[in-house]
Amino acid sequence: WLKDDEATHCRQCEKEFSISRRKHHCRNCGHIFCNTCSSNELALPSYPKPVRVCDSCHTL
């Protein structure tokens, strides 16, 4: 799980985070992405409801 202060850019699109481009953790891989690159939800065994995942984890 990557800490918020360790990420300054989206792991996928590499756009810089700002007040309007917020950080979101993928609940599967733990990396930090922008909203555009992590707008999917997936049912994971460790969560009772579908949770936010990055595009890469969603296509696995």
Rank of each mutant, 00 (worst) to 15 (best):
H58V: 13
A7M: 05
T36I: 13
G30D: 04
C26P: 03
T36M: 15
I19C: 00
S18I: 09
L60A: 13
D4Q: 07
C34D: 02
S18N: 09
R27E: 13
Y47F: 11
S38A: 14
R11F: 11
N28K: 07
G30K: 00
I19E: 15
E6T: 11
V51F: 03
V53I: 04
G30P: 01
K15Q: 10
Q12G: 14
H58P: 02
S20G: 14
Y47W: 04
R21F: 06
C34F: 00
H58Y: 10
T36F: 15
C57W: 02
S38I: 04
G30F: 00
T59P: 06
P45N: 12
K3A: 02
F33Y: 12
T36D: 15
S56D: 14
K3G: 03
C57S: 01
Y47Q: 09
K23Y: 02
E6M: 05
K23H: 05
S39W: 02
R27D: 13
L2N: 12
K15A: 03
H24G: 03
A43K: 10
N35S: 15
S46W: 13
E41M: 09
Q12S: 04
S46T: 11
N28Q: 08
A7E: 12
I32A: 09
R22A: 09
L42Y: 08
L42E: 11
N28V: 06
C10I: 02
C29A: 00
D4S: 08
H24P: 00
N40D: 04
C13S: 00
P48V: 07
A7Y: 10
T8R: 12
T59F: 07
C57V: 02
C10M: 00
H58F: 09
R27Y: 14
I19N: 12
E14W: 06
L60F: 08
S38M: 04
R11G: 14
E16W: 02
G30M: 06
H25I: 09
E6I: 12
N40G: 11
V51S: 05
N35A: 15
C29V: 00
S18L: 04
S18E: 08
V51G: 03
S38K: 02
P50E: 10
V51L: 05
S46K: 14
P50W: 03
H9R: 07
C26D: 01
E14M: 07
A43F: 04
S46F: 12
A43Y: 04
N40P: 04
C13M: 00
N35P: 15
K15D: 07
D5F: 06
E41A: 08
L60M: 07
Q12I: 10
L60K: 12
C29W: 00
L60Y: 04
N35K: 14
C34G: 02
K23N: 03
S20M: 10
T8I: 13
K15G: 10
N35C: 15
D55G: 07
V51Q: 08
N40L: 04
H24A: 06
L2I: 09
H25L: 13
R11W: 15
F33S: 03
Q12L: 05
H9N: 11
C54G: 01
E41I: 05
A43T: 11
R22V: 12
H58S: 08
T8C: 05
R21M: 06
S20L: 08
A43Q: 12
S20E: 14
F33E: 02
C26M: 01
N40W: 00
Y47D: 12
L2Y: 13
R11L: 14
C34E: 02
I32V: 13
L44Y: 06
C34Q: 03
